[in-house]
Design a protein around this nucleic acid. Sequence first.
DNA 1: GAAACATATCGATAATTCTAGATATATCAT
DNA 2: ATGATATATCTAGAATTATCGATATGTTTC
Lengths: 103, 103
Amino acid sequence: MFVFMEIIEVNKVLANQTRLNILHWLKDPERHFPPHKELGHFDFGVCAQYIQEKSGMSQSTISHFLLLLQQADLVIPTRLGKWTYYQRNEETISNYKQHLARL
Amino acid sequence: MFVFMEIIEVNKVLANQTRLNILHWLKDPERHFPPHKELGHFDFGVCAQYIQEKSGMSQSTISHFLLLLQQADLVIPTRLGKWTYYQRNEETISNYKQHLARL
DNA sequence: GAAACATATCGATAATTCTAGATATATCAT
DNA sequence: ATGATATATCTAGAATTATCGATATGTTTC
């Protein structure tokens, strides 16, 4: 029954269109974002700015959304210089799916 | 991307502890509820009263929750006399899981 | 048809979530 | 140090959700 609490927490986070989109976009950065000028790769995911621009929402909102995703352990942030890159946490996502599968 | 809207709709409904519990309880009525005195079976699911009593929440709240579950197509209501029985809609639930699996 | 019962709907308040603008912080370049 | 840039945090109002009590509706029984 503890597992349920995790499901609820994730469901709350993923009950929002933009946050669900973000998680989806991060699955295939090459497809959804321009290349990182400095890094040249997406090994740490995508920088917050690109996510914000693609979403069309305000910077503060996206920063907040990324925090929510992070608190639910759905994404892993990596700070490099002034940029913060976000990548999916496949382990949590996979656990979530497995738990839901038993519903 | 339309599929996402369905996921969001279901996630909203299942971001609530009680509603998630209800769906879980309905998976195995024998385990979670006393037998129906009149019917003697759970072929149509479980009557709203039993669900309400088990949940510990008010009658109006549970009636409302059951409506939300119904609107998301997660349960199927059957009215028999003064009772309304609710059973899981396994098709929708299965679809939901499959869609999420692609996330 | 009146009483009893199960469920549904209405109305209202409290709590939470959504979202943005303003501001703060951290980092880089000059 | 200063200015520019990326991100984070604070504050706040609007919108939505959670939940209940009261009332209405539908059904059965007498």
